[in-house]
């Protein structure tokens, strides 16, 4: 493959992000609630996987998704200051022997199994009370901008699949940013 085309493809990838919105996840709702010296993130994510991604999953390729939350403060004469930038990673894999779709989280908890992908995605879509360490950063009473997005971590795909994933819109499984502002 021509590397010139690869570079060109990388540009296409960025441009194609919006076009591939039909097969991409979408964040329906999100909110941050203060709980003592931390915040809790609740959100509703509508996961939609492209055929290519589903097929790869069924063929034993684990998919890693990342939920990215950024909290920033508006500054009048300067760029917004990013106060918090947190990522949660979780992996999806198919267990052939048990015929289960598994949701593996980073925190060492037991993988959760689901008989169908739809069940898994539904369960995964309901984000409940995720802890955001904000104690030292956010000042109560101030208004902040928060934004949330979910994306597929292409770098954790098997190596041969990465160039294809970078170049093919079918593999762009990122949601657009969901933005909201809140008063702490």
């Amino acid at each position: 493959m021509n590397p010139a085309r690869a570079g060109f493809g990388a540009m296409l990838l960025l441009a194609g992000a919006a076009c591939a919105a039909t097969d991409a996840p979408r964040i329906v709702r999100a909110e941050l609630v203060r709980d003592g010296d931390r915040h809790l993130l609740s959100a509703e994510v509508e996961y939609r996987f492209s055929e290519a991604a589903t097929e790869a999953l069924q063929n034993g390729v684990p998919l890693t998704l990342q939920l990215n939350l950024q909290i920033s403060r508006e500054r009048r004469y300067w760029w917004d200051e990013t106060m918090v930038d947190t990522r949660w990673s979780f992996r999806l894999r198919y267990h052939s022997l048990a015929k289960l779709y598994q949701w593996v989280e980073d925190d060492g908890r037991a993988p959760r199994g689901f008989a169908s992908l739809a069940a898994l995605l539904e369960e995964m879509g309901a984000v409940r009370r995720l802890e955001v360490p904000t104690a030292a950063v956010l000042i109560p009473g101030q208004t902040y901008q928060a934004r949330l997005a979910v994306s597929l971590d292409i770098e954790s795909l098997p190596l041969p699949l990465r160039p294809v994933a970078y170049l093919s819109p079918a593999w762009y499984l990122g949601s657009p940013w969901f933005q909201w502002s809140f008063v702490d």
Binding site: M1, A6, E55, A56, N59, G60, V61, Y94, H95, S96, L97, P158, L159, P160, L161, R162, P163, V164
Partner: peptide, 23 residues
């Protein structure tokens, strides 16, 4: 299970593998 998954993954990635080697 892991052998099967690995084999299946390899089989699935066959073309991608070829493509990446070719690349």
């Amino acid at each position: 299970e892991s052998a099967f998954v690995h084999y299946k993954e390899l089989n699935y990635l066959r073309n991608s593998l070829k493509a990446s080697f070719s690349l």
